[in-house]
Nucleic acid binder design. Structure first.
Length: 872
RNA sequence: GCCCGGGUGGCGGAACUGGCAGACGCAAGGGACUUAAAAUCCCUCGCCCGAUAGGGUGUACGGGUUCAAAUCCCGUCCCGGGCACCA
């Protein structure tokens, strides 16, 4: 064998050493990763004289292994980071770990590993995987949110929020996940189920910590109209979630009582048609108003509704039910007595928990009124029609003319809305009011693996915040985990028992921890100053780096993380800690990575490696091919990035993710596609090494016309490609078309005749290819760049700019249509006069065929593009 | 039900402000090289007729605007996502 290699090497021309013959990704990738690391190539340093660019990808939860979603997300980010760096920006590109959370605790219960050990092991594994991908992170800024040096500052921010009334505790009905044994914020409930484990959420009364996000509802909403760098669908989702509606709060006096029932309505124009009142079963007046002989019935009703879970109450076919309290209130504008009902569809959490019912103009009220035989009055008439309560089959909710509404009769209802609001305010019956669907953010979690909430309860002094000097409140390590649940913190005596910082008496610690979304709401600020010990935020550093210029992550966080982060940034701004009010200037939401599922009738979901030739490896049954779905462990339609890297290398993995589809769309996994990406890299490798001897000889291009024609067309291709790739990355994140453009250039170089006569232009082409590919396949590009004779890393070279002169074409190919159908193609001088183009078009043989003998109505000439001859 | 996306060859996807539909890649077929295979290279490739000329037809479906529509407008169907008694 050694003899063979010797002979083989000896047979090679002197400019080839043999090593470069074959592209071996593992060798190339390790080599350059070591060089980048030794050179601190991606270290970011503040420098006010340079333009900064903050590029951020959503940090991962350290589950243990990266998945294809990470590979895609971080490959996209790395393209932008490397591109911006080559463009001369001072790029900060950090990475860290969203390290608190439930899986660590579950591992502790299931496998007896302490969450901290489990988490840090996972971080080490995943970090090694990310490093193997060659992402250009500044690892010196790495953060793990479970590190006391991180959550210390979160506790401090909490104390400051407490001081400003932005954090508070209240007893309320919360969403309880029986599986996770903790509460969830409203945003974390999806279709009545836990966002993480999909168990049904139950209502539960608990004392909970809340953040006053509702104080910022208006600003959070207003800003969405100015955030031009965010995808519109995400902004719409946030607006819907905030759910602003405008209307009036109106007081209805209770008959024979001093009490008043306050309602919120957006339809004060229908006030004259309010014929009964609907209260939520949880409304404080519900029992209070009930007359003695209806009490039993009402109590039964309330008890029954309370027991029903949220799923049932929000399900599609939920029967509208109610009960009469026996009490009446008075319509403040008509003086009419209105029965007070309890209705199961009225929510205590929205508005005031009481609804003025206008059955003629609200569908729910209509159904309810029909069912319980309640009175109806029409107050809005549609144009050209006369509604009567007896004959209506549905509520009328469209615009119309006011009737039965006293002085407002005859107005259109939109005008009446304003007039009635004025009237109510003048008479002190009601006021204009804005209502939001957004609720305060419940942040208490009854879990161990999270940031302790720095509060102490003292029998004498009550609730006492932990003094700043005593921070951090460190998570104790010696706790016990029980499968049946219960917070390990609450059971940890050494943690719970403390002394009151105010009076010194024995006291208890708060044992709830923060929702892990709190950590991810400000980590991007800490990246700017990860080692700062003077406070959570080093203002100088943060003011330099913030805002994030480009944020990249999955759309599944559209309302959760992205709304919380916006809120938190505004809070920190109002605490004087940061200057910006919006954290993320531009947002890119990438699609999911999908793959078809495979199922065995006997063994269920199958991993790709469990299937051989369409059959289950275990039993030989035919594997059923399912539809393409998001890669997930539960459906086993996953591909392990490590296997992929081992087989093809990181650069191929990156290239495939970027080429197969644009970032916003879902990415369909394709083994063939990966092979295609790998084949392309090999092709480029070969074309560079095959021509190296030409390029490295410093001779110029020949001057003969034939060679010059090749030079011109090659240079045109080169500079067109530079332009296209630059614009595709910069303006559209269309990496797939950028890569396609480079492929075309490679094809053009490969097809160019007589390359040996124009080594200079050939060199220009090869260098352009390598430079343009660098953001996508950096190890590969480094290796070829050095092969092309550059001593300096390609990372340090500048992004190529295109030469407009090279793009100039003497002739243009113009399409000739007759009646809109292509009948010929002609070459005309660039920017030729319309009349000339027209004449050349008419002279085309095939065109003549279709024009001859017919009357020409019109000739449309689009310069440099198209001629359309319209004939009769 | 309401609000967003989307529907283009056998497949992933191009076509940026209306101007050659199908770039680029994958798959497939044919050929070259090879004892053979892999790799590589060359050719073909929406569908129908025809010969490789050329013609017809074609961007979910039905209408419309326009010299010209995948692109704009109206209506219908299907797929994906978000919200859903929000008063």
């Amino acid at each position: 064998m050694p003899v063979f290699i010797f002979i083989y090497k000896a047979a090679l021309p002197p400019w080839r050493s043999g090593m470069e013959e074959r592209y071996v990704p593992a060798v190339v990738e390790r080599k350059w990763q070591e060089i980048w690391s030794a050179d601190h190539s991606f270290r970011a340093e503040e420098n006010p004289t340079r333009n900064k660019f903050y590029l951020l990808e959503m940090f991962p939860y350290p589950s243990g292994r990266i998945h294809m979603g990470h590979v895609r997300n971080y490959s996209i980010g790395d393209v932008v980071a490397r591109f911006k760096r080559m463009q001369g920006f001072n790029v900060i590109h950090p990475m860290g770990w969203d390290a608190f959370g439930m899986p660590a605790e579950n591992a502790a219960i299931e496998r007896g590993i302490h969450p901290a050990i489990w988490t840090y092991e996972n971080i080490a594994n995943m970090k090694a995987q990310l490093m193997k991908m060659g992402f250009s992170y500044d690892w010196e800024r790495e953060i793990a949110t479970c590190d006391p040096n991180y959550y210390l500052w979160e506790q401090l921010i909490f104390l400051k929020m407490l001081g400003k009334g932005l954090a508070y505790k209240k007893r309320s009905a919360v969403n309880w996940c029986p599986q996770c044994l903790t509460v969830l914020a409203n945003e974390q409930v999806e279709e009545g189920c836990c966002w993480r484990c999909h168990s049904e959420v139950e209502p539960k009364e608990l004392e909970q910590w809340f953040f006053k996000i509702t104080d910022y509802a208006q600003e959070l909403l207003d800003e969405t109209y100015r955030m031009s760098g965010w995808p519109e669908p995400v902004l719409i989702m946030q607006r819907n979630w905030i759910g602003r509606s405008t209307g009036c709060e109106i007081d209805f006096p209770v008959a024979d009582s001093a009490k008043r029932i306050r309602v919120f309505t957006t339809r004060q124009d229908t006030l004259f048609g309010a014929t009964f009142m609907s209260l939520a079963p949880e409304h404080p007046f519900a029992l209070e108003l009930t007359v003695a002989d209806r009490r039993a019935e009402v109590e039964t009703f309330i008890a029954r509704i309370r027991k029903e879970d949220k799923i049932k109450r929000t399900s599609e076919d939920y029967e509208k039910e109610g009960v009469f309290t026996g009490a009446y209130c008075v319509n403040p504008v008509t003086g009419q007595k209105m029965p007070v009902m309890l209705a199961n569809f009225v929510l205590m959490e929205y508005g005031t928990g009481a609804v003025m019912a206008v059955p003629t103009h609200d569908q729910r009220d209509f159904e309810f009124a029909r069912k319980y035989n309640l009175p109806m009055t029409v107050v809005i008439q549609p144009p050209g029609e006369e509604l009567a309560p007896e004959t209506m089959t549905a509520a009328y909710t469209e615009p119309g003319t006011m009737v039965n509404s006293g002085e407002f009769n005859g107005l259109d209802n939109e005008t009446a809305k304003e007039k009635i609001a004025d009237y109510l305010e003048r008479r002190d019956i009601g006021v204009r009011k804005v209502n939001f669907r957004l609720r305060d953010w419940g942040v208490s979690r009854q879990r161990y693996w999270g940031t302790p909430i720095p509060i102490i309860y003292c029998d004498a002094c009550g609730m006492v915040p932990v003094p700043e000097r005593d921070l951090p409140v460190i998570l104790p390590e010696d706790v016990e985990f029980h499968p049946e649940g219960g917070s390990p913190l609450a059971a940890c005596a050494s943690f719970v028992h403390t002394t009151c910082p105010r009076c010194g008496a024995p006291a208890r610690r708060e044992t709830d921890t923060f929702d892990t979304f709190v950590e991810s709401s400000w980590y991007f600020l800490r990246y700017a100053c990860p080692h700062y010990t003077g406070g959570p935020i080093d203002k100088g550093a943060v003011d330099y780096w913030m805002p994030v210029d480009q944020y990249i992550g999955g759309v599944e966080h559209a309302v959760l993380h992205l709304l919380y982060s916006r809120f938190y940034t505004k809070v920190l701004r109002d605490l004087g800690l940061v200057r910006v009010g919006e954290p993320f200037k531009n947002l890119l939401t990438q699609g999911m990575v999908c793959k078809e599922t495979q199922k065995c009738p006997r063994h269920g979901w199958l991993f790709p490696e469990d299937v051989a030739e369409g059959k289950c490896r275990k039993c030989g049954s035919e594997a059923i091919l399912g539809r393409k779905e998001k890669m997930s462990k539960s459906k086993k339609n996953v591909v392990d990035p490590d296997v992929l890297i081992g087989q093809y290398g990181a650069d191929t993995a990156r290239l495939f993710c970027l080429f197969a589809s644009p970032p916003e769309k879902d990415l369909e996994w394709s083994e063939r596609g990966v092979e295609g990406a790998s084949r392309f890299l090999n092709r480029v490798w070969r074309i560079v090494y095959e021509n190296l001897h030409l390029v490295s000889s410093s001779s110029g291009d020949l001057e003969d016309p034939e060679t010059q024609a090749v030079v011109r067309s090659l240079r045109k291709a080169i500079h067109q490609t530079i332009k296209k790739v630059t614009e595709d990355i910069e303006n559209r994140f269309q990496f797939n078309t950028a890569i396609a453009a480079v492929m075309e250039l490679v094809n053009a170089v490969s097809a160019a005749p007589n390359k040996e006569r124009c080594p200079r232009t050939l060199g220009e082409a090869l260098e352009a290819i390598v430079l343009l590919l660098n953001p996508f396949v950096p190890h590969f590009a480094e290796e070829l760049w050095s092969a092309l004779g550059h001593g300096e890393s390609v990372e340090k070279s500048t992004w190529p700019s295109w030469d407009e002169r090279a793009l100039v074409e003497e002739q243009k190919l113009v399409v000739v249509q007759v009646n809109g159908k292509v009948r010929g193609k002609i070459l005309v001088p660039t920017d030729a006069a319309d009349s000339l183009v027209r004449d050349i078009a008419m002279a085309d043989a095939n065109v003549t065929r279709f024009v001859e003998g017919r009357e020409i109505h019109k000739v449309v000439v689009i310069p440099n593009r198209l001629v359309n001859i319209v004939v009769g």
